[in-house]
Design a binder for these strands. Structure first.
Lengths: 239, 239
DNA sequence: TCTTCTATAAATCTCGAGAAAAATCCTTGA
DNA sequence: TCAAGGATTTTTCTCGAGATTTATAGAAGA
């Protein structure tokens, strides 16, 4: 019997286990700043919030170590990974090193399926950008998801699993910082125009132009974060 | 009171907890092929071998997911990450992308301390290479450690934590494959000469030559593994 | 003989409690 | 008032047992 599968948003992977469920919610909360950078993550407190046992929550925290969103120190528990302007600069430049290479490969190797997926992702992103601006946090969240989907679709034709893996981690890291840059808008940006240009160059298979636009695009966010006051990067040492 | 600290081999971090101890031994066993690629890792069996509780062993396995040496599937337990010739090609090329960049930065920024550390690491590696050849697995193990230490010392002056982090993971991965290439010696190599040339170019701050030698050096191992019969990459589907 | 269904066995996941370590607070003395 | 030491509290780490899910083996039917 054929089931009608409802169209899923990508990334909405159903958790098959309590550990995965707690992991996903914890990851989301860390990226969104519910748990501040540098904050101590006490198992005994968190197990109530996420409604799982202590051992289960420990496993979820261990999974977050893979994403480098949590650091574990033996006999001293877990902490949210600290943030700093130097770290974001490092993240950005490493991400560009990997992502531009993956984009080069993708433009060279991508077939019709890849093109179709890029067109679709760009369309979805454009729609989300229209609904943006009215300070709707739900719309912003959806935009984040589609922005990631667009960037990942662009490099999806790269045959390098490892580059895509590392890119995924770095993108996730940068989300924490991008969230901060929302608080200040010192650099006026027409993000949609940037995406449009990147999209055009990619479909035209213009490697040089596409990587150049991508680099500018990513560095612009770095500049925005650089202008933030240092207090944003203080981080909690205790509690 | 001053204590006399015995000179430690790098990487010999004392485990502060049972989880870390099991993690280190498991990692070593996976890299050395005690647990074959693709093999299922049953908690109930392994907890006896490593003399820890089931929950503790689960946490150790979760830590290995960070190194991409183990893959976890919800409700289906853990497996040793499979290997393939395509995977090693990907590992090698991604590693070169990162490691050459880190080497460039290191040669540009490295100071006296970096130089001294490189000289020391090269000296230690040379000594280990002299003792090699008599099929002594203990000497081979020591050579592995010092080879890694030399490569990490070369890029230690790179300011990018993220590049070094990813390089560390990829190097660890490649150890599994390098171990396979020991079984066949189709390509005669004077590894010491390659290291000597890399060392000379690095201290001379000849970026172009150093990165070029490094690339050749790493690709040569890829070629050696490529000549292995396909049976090496079969991997266990069950058990 | 092959497929399908069911019953059994095995493995994973989950939780709470006890042991060990770290952090905190409080007393004591100068 | 401050520092040092010790006792208490908090937190982390560890284990074994029960519940749920998956895998295996066997029986029934085509």
């Amino acid at each position: 019997m054929n089931e009608v599968v409802p169209p899923k948003t990508p990334e909405a992977v159903e958790p098959k286990t309590l550990v995965e469920g707690a992991y996903q919610r914890l990851r989301r909360d860390i990226i969104e700043g519910v748990h501040a950078p540098g904050e101590k993550l006490r198992v005994e407190h968190l197990k109530d919030r996420y409604e799982v046992g202590a051992g289960t929550l420990r496993e979820a925290l261990l999974l977050l170590v893979t994403d480098a969103l949590v650091v574990a120190q033996g006999q001293r528990g877990f902490r949210v990974s600290p943030i700093s302007i130097e770290d974001f600069e490092d993240i950005t430049r490493t991400r560009l090193l990997l992502e531009t290479e993956a984009l080069r490969q993708s433009l060279q190797l991508g077939g019709e399926d890849w093109e179709a997926a890029v067109v679709a992702a760009f369309h979805r992103l454009s729609r989300a950008e229209q609904k943006l601006g009215d300070n709707d946090s739900l719309a912003a969240e959806e935009w984040e998801r589609r922005n990631r989907a667009f960037h990942e679709a662009l490099i999806a034709a790269s045959p390098s699993r490892w580059i895509r893996h590392f890119q995924h981690i770095l993108y996730q890291q940068s989300e924490r910082y991008r969230r901060l840059s929302l608080f200040s808008h010192p650099i006026p940006r027409d993000i949609h125009a940037e995406h449009q240009a990147l999209f055009n160059a990619s479909l035209a298979r213009d490697t040089t132009r596409a990587t150049s636009i991508l680099t500018e695009h990513v560095l612009r966010t770095l500049d925005a974060v650089k202008l933030l006051p240092a207090e944003f990067f203080a981080g909690k040492q205790k509690s």
